[in-house]
Amino acid sequence: MLEAKHLHKSYTLKEKNGWLSRRKQQIKAVNDLSLTIEKGEIIGLLGVNGAGKTTTIKMLSTLLAPTSGTISIDGINAVKQPELIKRRVNMIAGGERMLYWRLSARENLMYFGRLYGLNGNTLKQRCRALIDKVGLTEFADRPVERYSKGMKQRLQIARGLINDPDYLFLDEPTLGLDAPVARQLRVLVKSLAKEKNKGILLTSHYLEEVEELCDHVSIIEKGHLLLQGTPRRIIQTIVKDRSLIVVMKTLDKENWHWLKQETDKLGIHAQKKETNEGTRVDMKATFDMTSSFLALAQKRNLQLIRFDAKKPNLEDAIIRLTEVHD
């Protein structure tokens, strides 16, 4: 199990204050953050830009030392014994960095594999298996500088798996990827956790991705933990409103008054708007109003041309949460 307790990370920023003098400013990137990752579990770390997600990942992967707090991975202190931890973790970042562009996929993996102490047939076989896994077999000996963005990202994943880490940190892994490639990556991430029993920490701005993949989510803002739980639980806790949008060809005054009265009785807040499509009614309630509304529409034989019941999602929850804290 990976356990981070009361992590703090502060930076000193120097800003120019005149010709020669500089003003020092302390920035708290992470502020009393605690989280755990079990093997086989995918944890989402969410927050707006500058919330401290990348700094947290860098502390967990030993690239940065926390200002205070402890990180232990399977009982090993990550701050005191980073060399042991480096063998058990790896990090994959979105974008096209972390690869040697003049080397081929195979040469990159062989190089990183050797830096992790692998060699001989074990290394060769692992490189071959990873190249196959990320679908680069055909291009394995082509220099990376001739790869597309998606191919580079797939190779990054292979690099992140070269040491067969127990814990994997994914920082925006699908950033800028085409939908099919991003989907393949999601399938791979899921299988790494569920079939290979790896503990995964994922940050992403694509919240559907987080909702689809993560068992638990931690939401942070200004380095501070706001909320932790399953995606469903977070949505239920934060976003109470559900919305329903219906469009009818016509809705006369009498029917609208009747509908307004009935929805008010049910605790549904309804608003009417004339659009090019027809009359649009936006409804909001704290419960699923689909069946109640359909029953009302049937009573007055209202002709519906569009019916959109929108369930709140993680995005709504994050927006609501950051609005509350701003």
Binding site: T62, L63, K86, N90, M91, G95, M98, L115, Y116, G117
Partner: peptide, 13 residues
């Protein structure tokens, strides 16, 4: 500059 420093420093080499 080439963006490979992090990947290198992640390794226990």
């Amino acid at each position: 500059r080439e963006g490979t420093l992090e990947a290198l420093l992640l390794t226990p080499s």
